[in-house]
Design a protein around this nucleic acid. Structure first.
Length: 278
DNA sequence: AAATCTCCCTGTAGGC
DNA sequence: TGCCTACAGGGAGATT
């Protein structure tokens, strides 16, 4: 399921195939995603050239020079490059056809994703303007608007919220979903239900290192494929075999051998080792 | 104001 | 060709 590493894997997979391509046509088979695909999207995109493909949080941004296509993969979405037409399956909702015949195909069984068109500056877009810092951007210790231990420390003071839901909050840091929050907390030795306001600067420093390391390794492995996810080349990711706690409730901790526990936090399952994580 | 809950959706797993 | 329910999850919006 697409978290930051899966979105970045997708970005890297499609970029070499579609950067510089001119869009001939957008075929919308089913516009009913999280928000409706705008019915003018074919008119807005046709004839425009894809200049860059960037990522902000879990959003992919295709810049045409006069407006952006904003893509979110939801939890079961994928974007693949097809070098030639192929029959559309049940969940292949949108094809973006290039003038050279290459297609960018959006597939999303659960339709939690989105394809939106924005002519405004992206900094002002309602979905993007309140987002916190990127976890993998170069840290700037002088700037608390970047992902630093000082930021987490300051934002968490006086809060009783569980640290796991805290780091999954997009205003705190973006791109950390349920899988990688669980994994990073394990590697940092912090219980997911610990009140975020009781965690020291030093432990936040360690947590930040672990979040960066977990996300980076997952990107290097092509993301985590649990069921649906495929990268831009249609291949699954291989990080699943590196998961230490996520989805391992009842199994043994790889570090100490204790049984991995599962609790619900914010209606989301959270797995942890009660011996390694405090 | 902060924290928690609900909802959108559908494929899959598990119980019977 | 079994039917039914619970569950998974990102994140906006509602509620407590």
């Amino acid at each position: 399921m697409p978290e930051l590493p899966e979105v970045e894997t997708t970005r890297r997979g499609i970029e070499p195939h579609i950067q510089g391509c001119t869009i001939a046509q957008v075929i919308v088979r089913n516009p009913r995603l999280r928000w409706p695909v705008p019915d003018n999207i074919d008119r807005m995109l046709s004839g425009k050239t894809i200049q860059t493909i960037t990522r902000r949080a879990k959003y992919l941004l295709l810049d045409t020079g006069s407006g952006h296509l904003i893509v979110h993969l939801g939890m079961s979405g994928s974007l693949r490059v097809l070098e030639s037409p192929a029959p559309a399956g049940k969940h292949d909702h949108v094809d973006i056809v290039m003038t050279n015949g290459v297609r960018l195909r959006y597939t999303d069984p659960r339709r939690f994703g989105a394809l939106l068109w924005s002519e405004d500056a992206l900094d002002d877009h309602v979905l993007l303007k309140h987002l916190g810092p990127e976890p993998l951007a170069p840290p700037d210790t002088q700037n608390t608007a970047t992902f630093t231990a000082e930021r987490l420390y300051q934002m968490s003071r006086g809060k009783k919220q569980a640290v796991k839901t805290f780091i999954m909050d997009n205003k705190v840091v973006v791109g950390v979903g349920n899988i990688y929050a669980s994994e990073a907390l394990f590697h940092a030795g912090i219980r997911p239900d610990r009140a975020c306001g009781t965690i020291s600067r030093n432990r936040y420093k360690r947590l930040i290192d672990c979040i960066r390391e977990t996300l980076s390794k997952a990107i290097a492995d092509g993301g985590t494929t649990l069921r649906d996810f495929v990268g831009g080349d249609g291949r699954p990711g291989y990080f699943k075999q590196s998961l230490a706690v996520y989805g391992r409730e009842g199994e043994l901790c790889l570090r100490c051998g204790a049984i991995i526990k599962e609790i619900k936090l914010g209606n989301r399952s959270s797995c942890y080792c009660s011996r390694c994580q405090r």
